[in-house]
Amino acid sequence: MSERVKFFPGREIRSRSIDEVLASEYAADLKYSWASGAAMSRFLIELKNGRIIARKCNKCKRILLPPRIFCEDCFRETDGWFYVKDTGTVNTYSISYVAADASRLKEPLFVAVINIEGATEGMGFLHLLGEVSEKELKVGMRVGAVWKPEAERIGSILDIRYFKPI
């Protein structure tokens, strides 16, 4: 560095020496009950019925999924409900070997953004892929929803177990 910058401050604690300093520990378990809102409530109820529902905007003509009560582009209220198919194409995918806390998973998860048929091109959501081998995974592959049996559905994104190739 030039003469004006001679020293960069900071004292590192290496992982093996964390117990040598006076660190204090705290834990919190924050509980929430999130309102689903008007659009998502209906979406979840329809999942329970085994169907996927979107909202349409009559101004830009888009079929919006996930459904919302406003069009973020036209910035107006959306105009109505629209059932879309439970099939789609894989927009992109990845293979997760780690859990949310960065620990290793026993079995990797296949994760994908799926463009849903019937919605406007590029409208999709995140879900899991199943009944497929790592080698078969492809961007652009056609997939369909594998639903839980009706009795097990509760109105959750997990009412769809995963999507599988069709």
């Binding site: 996930p66 990845s94 997760s96 780690v98 859990a99 949310a100 959501f125 995140l126």
Partner: peptide, 17 residues
């Protein structure tokens, strides 16, 4: 919390995708 957390999402997924 409705669309993504129930799937077990991690930040790394979105980057990998």
């Amino acid at each position: 919390h409705h669309m993504e957390r129930p799937l077990g999402v991690t930040l790394l997924w979105i980057f990998a995708l």
